[in-house]
Design a protein around this nucleic acid. Structure first.
Length: 205
DNA sequence: CGCTTTTGACCGGCGC
DNA sequence: GCGCCGGTCAAAAGCG
């Protein structure tokens, strides 16, 4: 099923937030250039962390936000996506990977597969298998460059990552629900082995 | 035995 | 109103 990050090639992974188990970040050349990536999406210098999840060297996507739950409660803590400009319950990113299913620490159940007209590659639909969690994600190969996997997350998890018990990661909300006021301040360019260490198995995120 | 994957059918939204 | 398309459902099969 989900492949471990270790199977991905020649990429440097980091987490957008040290305590978040999501998503694998990469850099083709091993150099994380967040500024350049951001610049490409915010040519005018605008944009905020809340608008786009910071994904290091991964590519940024602007997705029209669906009506999201304004506040997510995780472990008694509320993670708000409060302002109209910081909604980020739907994010998309493109990752260069040999495998389509990048293990983000959550358990996903595939519920559909569809050939879409906009891409020669089939699109796979996954739903978080945790009870009561309605987070979905779509995974498809980039039509322009099949080496890249385009993943779109829809919604926010209302639970911690499965298998997190005893793991170094505390129960947290996913990256995209992190309040914009608390932008990730570290972990950019963390080497692969660091990510892999925090990802010893498929369910240990 | 329980969970996941597969796959065709069905449904709703949208554009023409 | 009709057809297209994307997304979801649900039954059957497979796997650990």
């Amino acid at each position: 099923m989900a492949a471990s990050l270790g199977l991905c090639h020649e990429t440097t992974y980091a987490y957008s937030h040290p305590s978040l188990c999501f998503p694998p970040l990469m850099a083709d050349d091993g150099v994380v250039d967040d500024a350049a990536a951001r610049q490409s999406f915010f040519p005018a210098g605008g944009g905020s962390v809340g608008d786009f999840l910071e994904l290091g060297h991964s590519e940024y996507y602007s997705l029209p936000p669906p009506p999201p739950p304004p506040v997510v409660v995780v472990g008694g803590n509320e993670y708000g996506v409060s302002s109209s400009t910081t909604t980020a319950s739907r994010i998309g990113f493109r990752t260069r990977s040999e495998v389509e299913v990048l293990d983000d620490g959550f358990k996903w159940r595939k519920y559909g597969k569809k050939a879409v007209k906009s891409s020669p590659n089939p699109r796979n639909y996954y739903r978080c298998s945790a009870a009561g969690c309605g987070v979905k994600k779509r995974v498809e190969r980039d039509r322009d460059d099949p080496r890249y996997v385009v993943t779109t997350y829809d919604g926010v998890h209302n639970h911690a990552t499965p298998g997190a018990g005893g793991a170094p990661h505390p129960p947290v909300a996913p990256a995209w629900s992190v309040p914009a006021a608390s932008p990730p301040a570290q972990a950019w360019g963390a080497p692969l082995h660091a990510a892999a260490a925090a990802h010893s198995s498929e369910s240990s995120f």
